[in-house]
Design a protein around this nucleic acid. Sequence first.
DNA 1: ATGCTATGCCGTCAAAGTAC
DNA 2: GTACTTTGACGGCATAGCAT
Length: 253
Amino acid sequence: MESMVEENGSTVDPLSQGSQSGDAAPAIATSVQSLSRSQHHLVASTSIVQLTLPLSGTTQVQSVIQPNQQSVIQTATNIQPVALSKANVILVSKPNSVIQTTQGSLQTLQVVETGSDDSFSDEESPKKRRDILTRRPSYRKILNDLGGGEIAEGRLPPLESSSECDSNVDSEVSSHSLHYQTAYTGHGVVVEDAARKRELRLLKNREAARECRRKKKEYIKCLENRVAVLENRNQTLIDELKSLKELYQQKTD
DNA sequence: ATGCTATGCCGTCAAAGTAC
DNA sequence: GTACTTTGACGGCATAGCAT
């Protein structure tokens, strides 16, 4: 199921078939939220161009996000129209692939081939599910594989909320430190130190969870965008096929 | 108005990955 | 080996929409 037409930017994608534009994106968005992280993951700020995603377990579909047209890629911080040129089109045809544009902004896409979560029965415990599921590599790992780890942080879209949160964290942490520095002596110090460490850990994890959710949302937006693009392409191909058929009919008559 | 359901966000835990 | 980071899972809470 690797149907793909490159010449005129038209692609037939099974993902698009049977669905009308307008309905599909929300449906995908809903389903994406229940995706296992082992299925596929993506960190991107702007233009994801070509990708291969595993569908229904074993099948893979190559797809293109408008390499020769204007593509709108939404980011978490803003909605950013991105004009895609051939220069930053990179085809990803294997799992665990990473794509990166030739231009400034870094885009990383990882596609992990796994079984579907549907393979787990209801009786199986979450623990067992966790044991079975393979964890996907982290963003850092992906970037290290790229050999560009040092640009990781800088290239991610700056977050207004993030910076605000960071300052909040700093102030919260320092206030906690002040609080615990005036704590007891003797055994009390140990207890308070443990409590302070726990507070700090919770605080950091709180922030990490926020960031993780932000990335996830970004990923979902990219997928939604992909759906929209593929639907467009599918319609283009259908129209093209129709006109070719008519042309052929006229010649044979 | 009330109850129900769906949805979204958040904090926390746990486990795997990563850095040192 | 250990501390730190990342992220799925889970439960709680708030809100919106709908049916009664």
